[in-house]
Design a protein around this nucleic acid. Structure first.
Lengths: 100, 100
DNA sequence: TTTATTGTTCGATAATATTCGAACAATAGC
DNA sequence: GCTATTGTTCGAATATTATCGAACAATAAA
């Protein structure tokens, strides 16, 4: 429950990012993070089981969309907006601007 | 082999579009269409079986990315760039601009 | 009408993902 | 140390997708 795999900027793949964001649960996590800046896993589950959410956080992490850090017993998540924007300029903004 | 389902602009869903583009084969189809304007299915297969390609064209069609029309025995495909851009401004451009 | 060309549809198989309970791990606080 | 809290990992069931051969459909051309 400590060392997370975060890809380097150069390893972020467009296909993986698009795939991760094609899931409604993950997309809503990303939208909420964009609004709130950062949030714990608990603050981002919608009453869903922890194990399901943990899976979605892993997908978001391992494709380079989210960065997770330890904060006591909880995990704080934030978007890697800068990294994403430097790799795919305008992509995140376009997705976040899309009608919900 | 005649009537294709093309969603109306208002029915184009972000998640479906992202999912469709998260596949390498489909993404490369879209890139080629962006370069060449339009192309038949045959011009877009990379030596892959027709039935596989037909599946991918269907996914691209049914999520609103590609418009297919009959042209003799062949099918001509083109991007619905205008429709996509009016629904998700900047999204297609950002994806096409991404490093390959 | 026969034949060739271009794709679609069907059906089966294999590969991947999603979901979630249960067990486990890490930290905080008493 | 003991307990509560937060999330991860494991494992299994279910669902979804991708792949592709074979059969079919539509048009064109001989």
């Amino acid at each position: 429950m400590r060392n997370f795999r975060h890809p380097a900027i150069s390893d972020i793949q467009l296909e993986s990012v698009l795939y991760a964001l094609s899931d409604p649960v993950r997309l809503s996590i990303v939208r909420q993070l964009a609004r709130e800046g950062e949030a714990t896993c608990a603050a981002l589950d919608g009453g869903r089981p922890k194990s399901s959410m943990s899976h979605h956080f892993r997908v978001l992490r391992e494709c380079g969309i989210v960065k997770t850090r330890n904060d006591g017993t909880s995990h704080m998540n934030e978007l890697r907006s800068g990294d994403l924007n430097s790799t795919f300029p305008g992509l995140l903004a376009a997705i976040l601007a899309a009608p919900k």
